[in-house]
């Protein structure tokens, strides 16, 4: 399966467009910063923060799929590895397993191991293309979740770990609604900026060229395989950051959180938002989480998954490149008329 991706790299911005862009990012940033002022705790954490860190995990997939042309179902697994590792090296409710390291040691090690795991997955998956990539990453995701469920020495089996907390800095409880929201926002902003920056770097441009025509890239001397594996490594780091926040948000990690269903949810978020722009995964995550929380109020509680499914179908049918694609088409039509320049 090749994903029809439109070119999403920078155009050389004129001064006017640059200013416009700065104004828009500034406005969005302000809105996100001010959001907690007008929202309740539920909206700050369960909707706001969760959108931001699940969006970051979905962004890791958008990066891999949108810019690298590789759709992976193992992104939540990378996040899960980070979450499990922070429980194993840090502090949890199982002191007999957890090593109890300080956060400044445990967190980097967790991120490192998750990135290494993603790299190894990439080394396997990058040898395949299209649907085979999806299958091999799905297999890795399911195998890891089952392994965690049956391994008691390190992963504590079915129950997993509870009692996971973010470090408290300067006496600030980072799991309290406001700090946790801003923590998630900071990580999401860093991840977003990182993806935008890397896509404009030589590596990012080469990766997009590999996506569009690997054979030609190989012919002119690029190491296609290495570029793909490196893309996996970066996606692993992004997902791992989201995974840390996921573990702190739930206060726990268990095999159920990284089973096949939740792994596929990440793909749904990315597709829903659209794999054409790094903001897509966040939009998708927002819509997904709103539906997940409120669909049950719209209809008989025993049928609410139907609403979620139908909403996804409508969005994907109406716009194959997700909500962002829909937005792009609308704004283009309005500002440029029917003869849009491409």
């Amino acid at each position: 399966m090749t994903i029809a991706i439109q070119d999403t790299t920078v155009r050389s911005p004129t001064n006017l467009a640059l200013h416009g862009r700065i104004a828009k990012y500034g406005l969005l940033g302000l809105a996100l910063l001010a959001y907690p002022l007008m929202a309740s705790d539920f909206w700050i954490v369960q909707i706001g923060a969760q959108t931001l860190f699940m969006g970051t995990i979905a962004l890791s997939l958008m990066w891999l799929g949108g810019y690298g042309g590789m759709v992976s179902l193992a992104q939540l697994t990378f996040a899960g590895v980070a979450a499990y590792m922070v429980a194993v090296f840090g502090v949890s409710n199982r002191p007999d397993i957890s090593l109890g390291w300080e956060w400044w040691a445990a967190i980097p090690v967790a991120l490192l191991i998750a990135t290494a795991f993603a790299t190894i997955t990439g080394m396997l998956a990058a040898r395949t293309e299209g649907i085979y990539t999806i299958m091999i990453t799905l297999a890795i995701a399911v195998a890891f979740s089952l392994f965690c469920r049956q391994n008691y020495a390190i992963f504590n089996g079915f129950a997993g770990f509870a009692g996971l907390k973010p470090p408290s800095l300067f006496g600030l409880n980072l799991r309290a609604p406001l700090p946790f929201y801003y923590l998630s926002l900071a990580f999401a902003a860093a991840a977003y900026a990182g993806v935008v920056y890397v896509t404009r770097s030589t590596f990012g441009l080469a990766l997009q060229a590999v996506r569009d025509n690997p054979r030609r890239m190989r012919a002119i001397g690029f190491n296609v395989y290495a570029h793909r594996v490196a893309a996996y490594a970066m996606s692993g780091l992004l997902a791992a950051v989201g995974g840390l926040l996921l573990a702190w948000f739930n206060g726990r990690i268990s095999p159920g959180s990284i089973a096949a269903g939740p792994c596929i949810n990440v793909l749904v978020m990315a597709v829903l938002g659209g794999m054409v722009h790094p903001v897509g995964p966040y939009v998708g995550a927002l819509v997904f989480i709103l539906l997940q929380n409120f669909a049950i109020d719209l209809i008989d509680p025993e049928r609410f998954n139907l609403v979620i499914g139908v909403a996804f179908l409508i969005i994907v049918l109406a716009s194959p490149d997700g909500l962002v694609g829909l937005w792009q088409r609308m704004t283009r039509r309005r500002s440029e008329g029917p003869s849009s320049q491409r």
């Binding site: 070119d7 809105a31 937005w327 704004t331 283009r332 500002s335």
Partner: peptide
């Protein structure tokens, strides 16, 4: 090339959404 999603008119849109 595709326009950035922050099309010129979208300032108002973003504000509305917020």
């Amino acid at each position: 090339m595709v326009r950035s999603i922050w099309g010129v008119r979208s300032v108002r849109g973003a504000f509305l959404a917020a």
